[in-house]
C-alpha cells in the first residue's frame, strides 16, 4: 500500500489540474487501490514557488507547477515556451514532451534536482485584454500592460510598459483603468476570472499564442523506491496523459468560449490574419530567441540549438493539430465567424 502526496498550485478547474485528477484516479484504479493519493489543489499545501523545491526535498511526492517561472535559477532551459511560436496547444504539448525525451540537457535539469519528469502540458493560448483597440504592433506604444516572463520581453520590445503585477490584481487594475491591458492568462482562466466583463477589447495580438507550460514531476527517489508493478502503472498512465490533453483542452476552450458569449456583452474581439501575424512575429521573434539564449547562457552554450530544435518539433506537429485558439473559438460560438 502506497500513499503519494500530490500538490499543485493551479486552480481546480484548469486543464492541467483536470488531467492530474484523471491521472490519479486512473492510477488508483489500475493499481487496484495499492496506490492512493492525498491531494492538495490550488496551493493548499505549498505555494507555486515552493512546489518544485519541495518535490526535490521529498516534501511532496508528485507536483504540478511551473518551475521555469517560479524557480528560474534551477530550470532556465525549461523556459522555452515563448510567445509567438505557436497558437496550437496540442502541437506545443507534443513538441515539449518530445523535446524532454530527446534533449539530454533539459532532462538533466530535472534529474539534477532529483525529479523524474512525468509529463508537461502547454497552457491554453493567451490573448491581450485591453481598454483600447490593439491591432498592429504599433498600437502597443506606451500601453501599460500587465505582463510577465516572455510576453513581458515581447511587450517591452514593442514599446509597451510591462507591469508585473499579480494576475488577480491585474483584473482589478484593468477594471479601474490602472493598466490599459492585461495578458499572460490562458484563455480559459482569463474568461473564468471575468476578463470579458472588464475589458472592452480582446485580441490575439498577432497570435501571441501559447506562452507557458506546466510540468508534472515525481520525486525520483520515491519513485524508484516503489515496487516495480507500481512504477509500471504510474508510467503507463503518465504516458496516456498527453493523449487525453487534446480532448480535455478542446472541451475547456469550448466551454470558456460559450461562457464568454454569455457574459462578454459588447466586447470587441479581433483575431489576426496570416499576414498580420507574420508582421507581429517578425517584430519580436529574434528578440525572444536572443533573450532565451542569454538567459540559459549560464548553464549551456547550446541555447540557440535547443530553441531551434523546439520550434522545429512544433512545426512538425502543427499540421495534425485539432486545437482552436480561444478567441477563434469565441467568434465561432458567437456566430461571428
Amino acid at each position: 500500500e502506497t500513499k503519494l502526496v500530490y500538490a499543485g498550485y493551479i486552480t481546480r478547474s484548469a486543464v492541467a489540474t483536470t488531467l492530474d485528477e484523471w491521472f490519479m484516479d486512473q492510477v488508483e484504479q489500475r493499481s487496484n487501490g495499492r496506490i492512493t493519493f492525498e491531494r492538495y489543489y490550488s496551493g493548499a499545501l505549498m505555494k507555486a514557488r515552493d512546489l518544485f523545491p519541495g518535490l526535490t526535498n521529498g516534501a511532496v511526492d508528485i507536483a504540478t507547477g511551473a518551475p521555469m517561472a517560479y524557480n528560474p535559477q534551477s530550470y532556465p532551459l525549461s523556459n522555452i515556451m515563448m510567445p509567438y511560436i505557436t497558437d496550437k496547444a496540442d502541437a506545443a504539448t507534443k513538441a515539449i514532451i518530445e523535446l524532454y525525451g530527446s534533449n539530454e540537457e533539459i532532462k538533466q535539469e530535472y534529474e539534477r534536482q532529483g525529479i523524474k519528469m512525468l509529463w508537461s502540458l502547454a497552457f491554453p493560448d493567451g490573448a491581450i485584454w485591453s481598454n483600447r483597440p490593439i491591432h498592429e504592433p504599433e498600437d502597443l506604444q506606451g500601453v501599460r500592460i500587465r505582463a510577465v516572463s516572455g510576453i513581458g520581453w515581447a511587450m517591452e520590445k514593442l514599446g509597451a510598459s510591462p507591469v508585473p503585477m499579480s494576475f488577480t490584481e491585474a483584473v482589478e487594475a484593468l477594471n479601474r483603468g490602472a493598466v490599459d491591458a492585461v495578458t499572460n492568462a490562458p484563455f480559459d482562466s482569463g474568461v473564468n476570472v471575468g476578463l470579458p466583463k472588464v475589458a472592452k477589447y480582446a485580441t490575439d495580438a498577432g497570435r501571441l499564442g501559447i506562452n507557458g507550460i506546466s510540468v508534472t514531476g515525481i520525486n525520483k527517489a520515491r519513485f524508484e523506491g516503489l515496487p516495480e508493478e507500481d512504477q509500471a502503472v504510474i508510467l503507463q498512465v503518465a504516458a496516456e496523459v498527453p493523449g487525453q490533453f487534446a480532448k480535455v483542452v478542446n472541451a475547456a476552450i469550448e466551454k470558456a468560449a460559450r461562457r464568454m458569449v454569455e457574459q462578454g456583452g459588447d466586447i470587441q474581439v479581433s483575431v489576426s490574419t496570416d499576414a498580420q501575424a507574420a508582421k507581429w512575429k517578425a517584430a519580436v521573434a529574434d528578440t525572444l530567441r536572443g533573450r532565451y539564449i542569454e538567459s540559459v547562457s549560464r548553464v549551456t552554450k547550446n541555447g540557440g540549438a535547443i530553441y531551434d530544435q523546439f520550434v522545429a518539433l512544433v512545426r512538425k506537429h502543427e499540421p495534425d493539430s485539432t486545437y482552436t485558439p480561444g478567441l477563434e473559438a469565441y467568434l465561432k460560438a458567437a456566430g461571428k465567424q
Binding site: V5, L45, M46, D50, P53, G54, N57, G58, A59, V60
Partner: peptide
C-alpha cells in the same frame, strides 16, 4: 513525514 514537515 519528517523531511516534509521540515521543508514546510
Amino acid at each position: 513525514p519528517l523531511p516534509a514537515a521540515e521543508f514546510l
